[in-house]
Design a protein around this nucleic acid. Structure first.
Length: 278
DNA sequence: TGCCAGGCTTCAC
DNA sequence: GTGAAGCATGGC
């Protein structure tokens, strides 16, 4: 157990911000004390399992050791970044955005695994978030490495090597729909070296976007999601149906992201989370 | 029941 | 290069 104070972090908001799909409140028996039941989230990432309880606005208890926190989760939650700087950069005359930031004050851009984000956001297209979660969970339970959690077992995200071994027919049994061929091709390209994830993670933002757009099944929206949520290119501004709705309803069809150059993706997350609340 | 979902590829033109 | 059709499936 490790206790720490963290600013600008709200776990409920992160869960519903649409950037992560294996970050869920109280889904299984807890490691953390029962007294935190109403405030405990369970996270599976990087083949690790974490429970994190928000016991106050800025006070958190994590199920990991301090060492694991420092080596994995501190980065995962992007805790070296001061989000108050982004908030201070908001146009105060922009009522929608001001309300959005006030509503989603505890959102951070998680630094998630590139392979997992590629698969997750390819699957995300034309699915709602509960359906994405169910689909990914099905893949994890079938093909992920087991992780022992007390008496319980959870499953890591399946590797490219594991998915590579599957036939299209096997993939089809997990509600991938027409995306099965995208995932199949992606696993093949990664395992055979046609797509190098290490190199991809080292590219400049604009080059990474180009490389992502060359991947079968990835268009501009998914490329921006992967850039933002895995590569931490926080200028990336994914436009999905919700963001487009905001742009049409609140900004007369045009939102100038250059106003927020360098952190437009953070702004996008506040907008997305707020718009989905009503 | 019908519409919609963190869109993309393909194919006319 | 632009625009429209077609797409699998589950949630609401």
């Amino acid at each position: 157990m490790y206790k720490i104070r963290i600013k600008d972090l709200n776990l409920a908001q992160i869960e519903d911000s649409g950037q992560c799909f294996r970050f869920i409140k109280n889904e299984r028996p807890r490691l953390n004390p029962a007294e935190y039941a109403d405030s405990t989230w369970q996270v599976i990432a990087f083949e690790k399992y974490l429970e994190i309880s928000q016991i106050d606005k800025e006070e958190f208890i994590l199920s990991c050791s301090q060492e694991e926190f420092e080596t994995i989760w501190k980065s995962y939650f992007d805790l070296d970044t001061d989000y108050s700087v982004f908030k201070a950069g908001i146009d105060t005359k922009d009522v929608f955005l001001t309300n959005a930031v006030e509503y989603g004050w505890g959102i951070r851009i998680l630094r998630q695994d590139l392979w997992e984000m590629l698969v997750s956001f390819i699957i995300s297209q034309r699915k709602n978030i509960p359906a994405i979660r169910a689909c990914l969970e099905s893949l994890c339970q079938a093909y992920g490495q087991p992780i022992k959690v007390g008496e319980d077992i959870v499953y890591a995200f399946p590797s490219a090597e594991r998915l590579y071994t599957l036939s299209l027919e096997e993939l089809k049994t997990h509600s991938l729909g027409y995306r099965d061929k995208y995932i199949s091709r992606l696993a093949k390209d990664v395992v055979e070296g046609n797509i190098n994830l290490v190199e991809l993670s080292q590219l400049k933002p604009e080059d990474a976007t180009k490389a992502l757009l060359n991947i079968y099944g990835i268009g501009i929206k998914v490329a921006n999601c992967v850039s933002l949520f895995a590569l931490h290119h926080i200028d990336a501004f994914p436009i999905d149906v919700w963001i487009q709705r905001i742009i049409d309803e609140e900004y007369e069809g045009h939102f100038d992201t250059s106003r927020y150059a360098g952190f437009a993706g953070v702004i996008q997350q506040y907008m997305f989370y707020y718009r989905r609340s009503y």
